[in-house]
Design a protein around this nucleic acid. Structure first.
Lengths: 218, 218
DNA sequence: TTTAATTTTTAGATTAGGCTAAAAATAAAA
DNA sequence: TTTTATTTTTAGCCTAATCTAAAAATTAAA
């Protein structure tokens, strides 16, 4: 059985690994978890001893197979509970995160099996994020160009085609980076331009831009 | 917001107060919570400072109005979650306690309001215990003689009519005391004798016995 | 390739909650 | 009413998880 703190570290390191494809730095973890790097070092060393992740001083960390499984289990619970909150209790999808952050730490295999069944074995949570199965596997999702998306579709930025610094700086200015969730609000037929939502902002992007952003959809 | 430990202390002190009608001793709390009396003293002093209970050294403690409200809130959550687990997830009523012990500490007013509604505003949990309302009030339940109950009814022993030591020792031998839950499995019409369940034991009792035990039902 | 800036780690302290052992207060027995 | 037994509290220590400040390693810049 893992503590609440341990589960949260594993979960967040898992997410960071997905986003940056590779080892995760101490500072990245600290920033994401709104804690201090020194605290991260301590916990990471502890988790390394427990074989949840591999760690070399001053180099980043990577989850072990076991660590990934634990993390995926927590994420599975989080997303299943979100489905429950939205589908059954009629919460709006943007109100459920905090509550699911608590519910994801309830320990009971049986509970999650039954909840999953009760909800109809959903594949995605209300935000469109995939729900890991009971073994921690997430259905591989396809990678598309943003330009292939239609109005109302959404996905997460997972990469860029064009890697010139001009383009990257352009994305940076609009707060688009790996892991950013993008929502297609509108798409012009005649020139392929789009109105997209990023966080709380909405703006236009050209067809050219849309053709250079890889998006992972459901 | 109260910590998990604080909520558990308040909840258990609340239950002990109900059972023994009056101040609760340090040892009683320690025994119930499977902890050491010295730990109890520490926590009780802390909760006293927070005005959750009143406490005088070497005398027992009693919850304040505020403390009772918090405790009733935790109990409300526990029992509502038990209803969810049994009614919706089809758990058996004797499998849900441990899980509800965890779920009772999820903090969200909105969640509980919606859960309550979703479950049809139940008045009792699957064990027949009353669910406090959102203000912490528990519907006053009537006190009957065990002899007035019918087959399949159940309740909690809340007192005795006959107080002779012979009778009390008789009850003691059968592990019946204040707070004991009694389940009427059968009742003979011609002589008023009953078969009752107490914990895991089942046995006969005479009409005379049944007429001297006060039972609180739903 | 030195120097400067940044990142990461260590050392030492803090807080919540719990424990042991001993002291103090209360209750029970002689 | 002493003495004895029981209950309760205090004092001091421990662990998990956090923090600050300072030291060490790495990376970037000159």
């Amino acid at each position: 059985m893992y503590s609440l703190a341990e589960e949260n570290y594993l979960k967040n390191i898992y997410h960071l690994e997905q986003e940056s494809k590779g080892g995760v730095s101490t500072n990245a973890i600290a920033e994401r978890m709104e804690t201090k790097p020194s605290s991260v070092t301590d916990m990471v060393q502890k988790l390394a001893e427990k074989k949840m992740l591999s760690y070399k001083k001053y180099k980043g960390t990577t989850l072990t197979k076991n660590g990934k499984k634990i993390a995926a289990g927590v994420i599975r619970k989080h997303r299943l509970w979100e489905v429950f909150l939205v589908d059954k209790l009629k919460f709006h999808w943007d109100e459920v995160h905090e509550i699911a952050e608590q519910l994801e730490h309830i320990h009971s295999e049986e509970l999650i099996m039954r909840l999953d069944k009760y909800l109809g074995n959903p594949d995605f949570d209300p935000h469109g994020d995939p729900i890991p199965d009971q073994y921690g596997n997430i259905k591989p999702t396809e990678k598309k160009l943003l330009s292939e998306l239609e109005k109302k579709q959404r996905g997460v930025c997972v990469g860029v085609k064009e890697t010139g610094s001009e383009f990257l700086q352009y994305l940076d200015k609009r707060n688009i980076t790996i892991g950013t969730k993008i929502n297609v609000l509108g798409k012009e037929f005649f020139d392929g331009s789009m109105i997209i939502q990023v966080g709380r902002d909405q703006f236009f992007i050209s067809k050219k831009t849309a053709e250079n952003l890889y998006i992972q959809t459901n």
